[in-house]
Design a protein around this nucleic acid. Structure first.
Length: 924
RNA sequence: GCGCAUAUGGCGUAAUUGGUAGCCGCGUUAGACUUAGGAUCUAAUGUCGUAAGACGUGGGGGUUCGAGUCCCCCUAUGCGCACCA
């Protein structure tokens, strides 16, 4: 029987599906293991060969764990809301749901062909009302919560209201947008609107006036992680800063916990570092500077409290509310002109333009430590959104302040002994302080770190400041002026936002006729008819962003059809959290932060039992494209082979990689590829047309997209799976190169040949030989170790060696071959099932098998070869009994006649014996 | 600018974690078979050299009997953050 991948793979895929082999249910007698892939956004282009890389890796792990007896949860679903489907809808009028469902069907058929062990009964789609009901539900919970900093967790907003009623803000330590102070009487006297506005400062999901990333081209706001270098990540359109009234999530309240619990996660250091950078903790102090001749006080944040004696001016962010308040009448005109010039710049322009700019407000502040009068400036190098939007400038020890001081000719006072500030600032946090004493606070002679601590103590004692930790992490902007997303369960009653009753969820996305904003500039939902609450109040017109649906999907898989809860306590108690999560690093500062936040929030509420969602995370590398080129001689239709291009004036042209094999062009296929090449002529080398190549992003425009379906059709899913893993280390990015796939395909055929000679099975119950067992157990040891460390590429090599060895040993032993198949099953499940079924256990499938135990005894040798070397230089080999003691090996080496010759006339200093490897004789 | 990775044959990579560098695969070369091929099988394949041998893990230094692996200094590439006070 020949190896026929089409027949084998469809047979077993059908079998698995019909028998629900991979369906998981809670089973308290077995240990659970939860393996998750980052679910895909179903794009119109379908899967290319890079997408399944991580899925194959997780599939191997899942199958391995299952063979080890774990109850494995391995689900899949779709992140179905997103901009591309909506952009397509705007262009074509096609409802995004229609295109999304088509794309999902295509993805599903592509995934099915690869033979994954997903439990499809648990499939979820984020655009399914039964799913997004729980996204809306979580939002309501966030609206009804605030973050209590003392308890360090989210609490019901009702508790805060009760406190306000009894004591006002006294004793409240809560995460808030602004700091408030009022009495219980004041609270009781507030109007409903005032109360609502006040509570918005505390709610975890809140409406706030925030500076947002507004993308005019996309017509929506974007979160920080959706913007890079001033342009939108999707589409690459310019993004500008705009103050808007938006729904936000108070992610910043969780910054400390998000940072601290990173320690406990089994993620790569680089990913944790990326998150640490993004969260950006900095410990410093807030200090108050009084404005001269005024009651106003400016609050600044600094990490270098020690440099207080070197403050020669202050700078406010252009957006700071203080600018308006402190600017003197004489300076008003100039300040306004400056603010205008800033406003007209986009974020991108502000970033590109690194020229120093700024304007003096005319006001002075008093340094609280020295009592000196210092000028207050405005400049766009100070950010409104970080710290207090105001800084104390220490030009001697901060490069930005230095550049500013130089430009505007402001004084520079060095504070560190030996620091030369004539050319540049001295930013390092080291050295001994000078010029830093006012009598009560004396930092002179102290090290910087000590001086920082000392100054902090001083300002707290004097009441001129306090120790403060700041985070770079901002609250997530949660509104999108878009159609294709989850509707907010929010209506506005006389302008006051209210949550819909939970019993009304899901609030379904309404049908609309067009997907563009309304004429009056409202979001697309403004077109929906009767978009009102049951009481007739208008509903929110924005929808939620992409990350809303992906933030808790891993919880929903645990209990996907539950109508009463996101996840039942029973299911959550059993499946707990994701044991292994595989996905790309591109989600490091988006999804992986939001999910952790969302999970911690639900944890605070007691809805879930684990504080972190993803215990172990593995980042698969990106598969890049490998483009091929043909070289056309200028102004002709003649193409010249790569080796000969030096002799002609040629233009390289991308050619479809699917008509190129091992860099050899199929010239006939090329002629038929496009009409203009119908008459193409070729100048060949050795009768072949050799193409050039380059590594580029895999994309349609480079003609380097390889579809997994084509590979599966030609070589089979097992070959695709093995080859993807064989390509190199999982975490590493690498180009897809179909050259080389024959190697793994040949391996499968050899494996097949181990069982079948022609049509007869060559498997019997003969006793395994010592060699058989050694080959097998070498494999078991290697693969078991590799799977745990995701070194799948070296496992494939081990399979090849093992099969070659067993073939040359003419192994027929059912016992040996059975274990070989079990070990292979996670990697190449179809062929393993087929051979198992026909050669090993006719009434069973390989899913019933047990992962074989490794036995060290089989690997033991009778004799062991030692390399004898002198001063590290290898000279000859000796062989010794495997159980020989070090001393005996030493003696053997010495007694060797060659040894005698080599060490002749030299002193032996020592002899180092590495068991089973090396005898090194140190002479001198 | 700050931080994190990575660097090994013509190519993708491996190295029991300090112990004979180059496993496995691709490619290449030669041969066998042959229905003449983009099939299969066998062998060779780091570089220089007829050989003995010498050299060889981005470059330079160091530790060690012994370094791809550890330490120091460079260089290059990739990624992340970036007026974050």
């Amino acid at each position: 029987m020949e190896y026929n991948h089409r027949e084998i793979e469809s047979r077993w895929q059908n079998y698995w599906r019909e028998n629900k082999v991979y369906h998981a249910e809670i089973d308290k007698n077995r240990k659970k293991f939860y393996v998750l892939d980052m679910f895909p956004y179903p794009s119109g282009a379908g899967l290319h060969v890079g997408h399944p890389l991580g899925y194959i890796a997780s599939d191997i792990y899942s199958r391995y764990k299952r063979l080890q007896g774990f109850n494995v949860l391995h689900p899949m679903g779709y992140d179905a809301y997103g901009l591309p489907a909506e952009q397509y809808a705007i262009q074509t009028g096609q409802h995004p749901e229609v295109t999304t469902m088509q794309n999902i069907a295509r993805y599903r058929s592509q995934l099915d062909k690869i033979g994954f062990c997903y439990d499809w009964d648990r499939e979820i789609k984020t655009c399914d009302p039964e799913y997004y009901k729980w996204t809306q539900w979580a939002f309501i919970k966030m609206f009804n919560s605030y973050y209590d900093k003392d308890a360090d967790k989210a609490m019901p907003i009702s508790k805060l209201i009760k406190h306000f009623e009894e004591k006002g803000t006294e004793g409240i330590n809560a995460a808030s947008t602004k700091e408030f102070e009022f009495t219980a009487e004041r609270w009781k006297g507030m109007s409903a609107k005032e109360k609502s506005d006040t509570l918005m400062n505390y709610r975890i999901a809140y409406l706030g006036n925030t500076m947002v990333n507004w993308c005019p081209k996309l017509g929506t706001v974007l979160a920080n992680d959706e913007v890079s270098e001033g342009v939108s990540i999707r589409g690459g359109y310019p993004v500008e800063q705009k103050l808007m009234y938006q729904w936000c999530l108070r992610v910043s309240a969780y910054a400390g916990r998000l940072l601290d619990s990173l320690e406990r996660l089994d993620w790569t250091d680089s990913l944790k570092e990326t998150q640490r950078n993004w969260i950006g903790r900095s410990e410093g102090a807030e200090m108050i500077f009084k404005v001269d001749n005024s009651d106003l006080e400016l609050e600044i944040f600094t990490t270098r409290a020690d440099t207080i004696f070197g403050v020669t001016f202050m700078v406010l962010a252009p957006e700071s509310a203080y600018v308006e308040k402190i600017t003197t009448p004489e300076r008003r005109e100039e300040v306004n002109a400056y603010l205008d010039s800033i406003k007209h710049k986009t974020e991108r322009e502000r970033m590109i333009d690194k020229k120093v700019s700024g304007v003096f407000t005319g006001a002075y502040a008093i340094n609280p430590v020295t009592g000196k009068k210092i000028p207050v400036w405005v400049s766009d190098y100070v950010l409104a959104g970080y710290g207090t939007g105001a800084i104390m400038a220490v030009p001697a020890h901060d490069s930005r302040d230095y550049a500013f001081a130089r430009h505007f000719d402001l004084p520079i006072i060095p504070l560190i002994e030996g620091a030369d500030v004539s050319e540049e600032s001295f930013d390092a946090k080291s050295g001994k302080m000078i010029n830093s004493s006012n009598g009560r606070l004396d930092l002179n002679g102290k090290e910087v770190k000590e001086a920082i601590a000392e100054t902090k103590r001083f300002i707290e004692a004097e009441g001129i400041g306090k120790v403060k930790t700041n985070y770079r992490l901002r609250d997530a902007i949660f509104s999108r002026q878009r159609y294709w997303g989850e509707p907010f369960p929010v209506y506005y009653k006389e302008g006051i936002p209210e949550m819909l009753d939970e019993s009304l969820l899901p609030l379904k996305l309404p049908q609309i006729d067009r997907y563009l904003p309304t004429e009056s500039g409202e979001p697309p939902l403004g077109r929906a008819e009767n978009w009102v609450s049951p009481e007739g109040y208008p509903l929110e017109l924005c929808t939620m962003p992409g990350f809303a649906g992906s933030s808790a999907y891993y919880l929903r898989y645990m209990d996907p059809r539950n109508n009463e809860a996101l996840v039942s306590h029973e299911a959550n108690d059993y499946w707990r959290s994701v044991d292994l999560y595989i996905g790309g690093t591109e989600h490091a500062t988006g999804h992986l932060i939001y999910s952790r936040f969302w999970n911690k929030f639900l944890y605070d509420l007691g809805e879930v039992c684990e504080d972190e969602p993803f215990k172990k995370l593995v980042n698969q590398g990106m598969i890049q494209g490998r483009s091929n080129f043909v070289y056309r001689i200028k102004d002709t239709n003649t193409f010249v082979s790569r080796g000969l291009i030096d002799q002609y004036d040629v233009t390289p042209i991308h050619v479809d990689v699917n008509i190129v094999s091992n860099d050899i062009l199929d010239t006939e296929a090329f002629k038929n590829w496009r009409p203009e090449y119908k008459t193409a002529e070729f100048i060949l080398e050795d009768g072949k047309y050799v193409c050039g190549y380059a590594v580029e992003k895999m994309s349609k425009s480079m003609f380097n997209v390889v579809n997994p379906d084509d590979i599966v059709e030609r070589y089979g899913a097992d070959t695709l799976r093995l080859y993807e893993m064989f390509l190199g280390p999982l975490e590493q990015s690498k180009p897809w190169d179909t050259n080389g796939i024959d190697g793994v395909n040949r391996f499968i055929k050899k494996l097949w040949g181990l069982f079948y000679k022609g049509d007869t099975l060559h498997v019997d119950d003969s006793e395994p030989t010592k060699e058989n067992l050694k080959s097998l157990h070498k494999l078991i040891k290697k693969v078991t170790g590799d799977i745990e460390t995701f070194s799948y590429n070296t496992s494939i090599a081990a399979f090849m060696i093992c099969v070659n060895e067993l073939a040359s040993q003419k192994c027929r032993s059912r016992e040996v071959l059975a274990e070989l198949l079990v070990v292979l099953a996670p990697f190449a499940p179809h062929v393993a099932e087929e051979l198992w079924h026909s050669a090993i256990g006719r009434d069973t499938t390989i899913c019933d098998a047990q992962w074989p135990a490794f036995n060290e005894d089989y690997l033991k040798e009778d004799t062991v070869n030692y390399a004898v070397s002198f001063n590290g230089k290898a000279r000859y080999n000796i062989s010794a009994p495997a159980d020989a003691a070090k001393e005996d090996v030493e003696k053997m080496a010495l007694g060797h006649e060659l040894a005698a010759k080599w060490i002749d006339g030299k002193n032996i200093k020592k002899i180092i014996v590495v068991p089973g490897k090396i005898v090194n004789i140190v002479i001198g």
